[in-house]
Amino acid sequence: MFRRRFRMRKHVFLRIVEDLSRSDNYFTQRVDALNKEGVSPLAKCTTAMRMLAYGMAADAVDEYIKIGGSTVLECLRRFCKGIIQLYEQVYLRAPTQDDLQRIQLKTI
């Protein structure tokens, strides 16, 4: 069910949430001046992932997760920036000659 809904395995999703929480204070559970807990890191990442996976509009997600529209857009913006910052060197790079050769060998 999780894999079908988010188009990734649960342990990968939780690793992303954990990495973002460590690198960006926005993805941590905080308490406001009235001692009320804010939106959890899981909810923020879930919001961004659902928007990316299904191409959902911000107002559709805010009804599902009960977050305001401006917060939804901020979650998405920070999520994308955080993913690029965290994983760019490993996963978001141009293929090397070795990568291209490996791909070509697999298709033959």
Rank of each mutant, 00 (worst) to 15 (best):
I108L: 13
S70I: 02
D59K: 11
S40Q: 03
A57E: 15
L20T: 00
E74Y: 06
Q104N: 07
S70C: 11
F13E: 02
V12W: 06
D98G: 00
F79D: 08
A57P: 01
E37L: 15
R9K: 14
C45E: 06
V17Y: 00
L14S: 04
P95L: 08
S40H: 00
L34R: 09
R4A: 13
M51F: 07
M49Y: 02
T28L: 08
Y54I: 04
Y26C: 00
I103M: 14
K66F: 08
L86M: 03
E63F: 12
V72S: 05
Y26G: 03
V61F: 06
L34A: 12
Q101I: 12
Y54V: 01
F27D: 05
V90A: 05
V90T: 15
A58W: 03
C80A: 12
L42C: 05
F6V: 04
L100S: 07
R15C: 01
Y54E: 13
L92F: 15
V31Y: 02
V31Q: 02
D32M: 07
Q85D: 13
R78K: 14
E74Q: 12
R9C: 07
A57R: 14
D59G: 01
L52V: 15
I103A: 15
D32Q: 09
N35D: 11
A57M: 13
T28N: 11
M51W: 12
E18R: 13
Y91C: 08
F13S: 00
C75W: 04
E74K: 13
D99C: 06
L34D: 13
A60E: 13
S40N: 02
T96N: 06
D59C: 08
A53N: 14
Y87F: 12
M49Q: 12
V39Q: 01
S23T: 05
Q29A: 08
R77N: 14
Q29D: 04
R22W: 07
L86Q: 06
A48S: 14
S21N: 02
Y64W: 05
G55A: 06
L92H: 03
L76F: 13
K81E: 15
L14T: 08
A33P: 00
F6P: 02
L42Q: 12
R77Y: 04
T46H: 10
A43V: 10
L105K: 10
R77V: 06
R15P: 03
V61Q: 06
S40C: 03
V17G: 05
K44E: 07
E88M: 11
R3G: 00
A33S: 09
M8S: 07
Y91R: 09
G82M: 08
R78T: 04
T96R: 14
I65N: 03
A94Q: 10
P41K: 04
Q101A: 06
M1W: 05
G69M: 10
